[in-house]
Design a protein around this nucleic acid. Structure first.
Lengths: 134, 134
DNA sequence: CTAGCCGCTGGAGCCAGCTCCAAGTCAAGA
DNA sequence: TCTTGACTTGGAGCTGGCTCCAGCGGCTAG
């Protein structure tokens, strides 16, 4: 079991952010130790890490909420699947697909920019060469 | 010359957003026609379009500001170069190079995420297939 | 000439996503 | 026992990035 501080260190979120995510229902409330102290399980930490990963893709908190609530854990390929899980795999698949398309559009834009920037750099280099040779 | 409405239609920004970008110094103030009406040049439109492109990559307004102001990287290849320009071409070249490296790191991260997402999607599809075939 | 469109400005409002704070509880250590 | 420090809560505040609005001015068509 981990304290909120430990989970913060493990995931990269601040304790405030973890509590905020709990408040908006993105993360479920963990068990409480003595004195109402949050005690996170391994599973909780894995989920929080998954959220951190999703966040890096630019997914909105609302989308993540939907994604996570459609099933339990993102990590274990080897887990057993309940009927309920199976019913929502297709939904989650669609969300992921949407996300993938978004990311690929992003990459296309980035590639275009990289190309433009390379062209510009080449142009600068030409200008420099010409200037030197004159 | 274009009105703000035309630039909005051409670039995909709203007139409000264009004025906002001008206010925060991301876009330079265009010429004014009679009655203080903004009149955008071709160059202005090109710059606004470039901003739109950068925005799609998820770059923050502050980063775009730096990117545009320090490097003039998006300007026209056919523009005339002043002595001052030539003196700083090498400096700008370095800035561009730094940007390029940054973008390529970004692309790497994005590619990794895309790969992860594809793997996850593939796994979901397998689960679905198995379920159907059973 | 006046109604209907733009467009202008300054400023308020809004949403997402945190981030900070005061005031309190509790446990462990000097 | 007293202090220190990590945790709790509810709620206020903040940043980024717009978006909307009131109240005004100027062109053009009827």
């Amino acid at each position: 079991m981990y304290t909120i501080r430990q989970v913060a260190d493990l995931t990269g979120f601040s304790p405030d952010t973890l509590r905020y995510y709990e408040k908006i229902g993105l993360l479920k409330s963990p068990q409480r130790g003595s004195g109402e102290v949050r005690m996170y399980s391994e599973e909780d930490v894995r989920l929080a890490s998954a959220v951190h990963c999703l966040k890096k893709t630019g997914m909105s908190l609302d989308d993540m909420k939907e994604f996570i609530q459609e099933g339990r854990c993102l990590a274990d390929h080897s887990s057993l699947w309940s009927d309920e899980d199976l019913q929502t795999v297709s939904t989650r698949s669609q969300i992921l697909l949407k996300q993938l398309e978004r990311m690929e559009r992003q990459r296309q834009a980035l590639d275009d920019l990289i190309k433009q920037t390379k062209d510009k750099l080449g142009f600068y280099n030409e200008v420099l060469k010409e200037t030197i040779s004159q």
